[in-house]
Amino acid sequence: MINLLKNLFCSSLGKKFIMAASGCVLFLFVVGHCVGNLQVFLGPEAINRYGAFLQGLEELLWPVRITLVTLVILHFWSASRLTLENRAARPVAYAEWNPTVASYASRTMFVGGSVIGCFIVYHILHYTALVNVGGGNFTSSAQFEWTNEHGEKIHDIYKMLIVGFSVKWWVSIFYIVAVGLLSLHVSHGAKAMLQSLGLKSKSYDPAVRCFAAAVAAFLFVGYSSIPLAIMLGFLK
């Protein structure tokens, strides 16, 4: 066991496993989160019910949150360790450098990932802790109350989104840029995690490539559609 942990946390491949495994779970979360959020287009009823359902899973809510945060930390920790090692591995740069087939996404995983990390902090402050980072008028959680069909008062996610994205235009732009980076990150990460976990194979590699590209595109369109729709006034 000690050996296993040592190999996982000290060796290069171990850190890659940590990165890939955490990335894999985060990937699933990001996709699920996107699908859930798209319910905003079904109107306040649907998205608020969904929110209440998640909030209602009291036994799971915090364990899931803690797990996700731990995974993000592990993901970031392994990435930064690996990146530091990578930088040290080439002390003298090439005068002329042709990255051949290395995609833009693959070359910007750490920088992009770091921006995404900052974005996550912002995003949690914004919509989970309801801190006034959007320059807006989040006064109290009571501001967002919704009465459902059973007459219960639940959190009005719909209104929160409308308010959050309509106060300052740059908030929406930042969200769109961030999900753009996220989908770029996922476009490489979804392929690379299979490779790092040793699950890549020639027989289904083309399918994996298509899948990664499709999911990345879906995430971008899905996530950015919400602030965009609000900015353009489709959702009120």
Partner: peptide
């Protein structure tokens, strides 16, 4: 350094050794 699966190695390899072997290495190590 570490592998970030960019595929550059496979592209320049004079013997065209496939990136799939890195997946196998990961598997073997795991």
């Amino acid at each position: 350094g570490n592998c970030t699966v960019t595929g550059s190695c496979e592209a320049v390899c004079p013997k065209e050794v496939s990136l799939d072997f890195i997946a196998q290495l990961n598997r073997e190590y795991g």
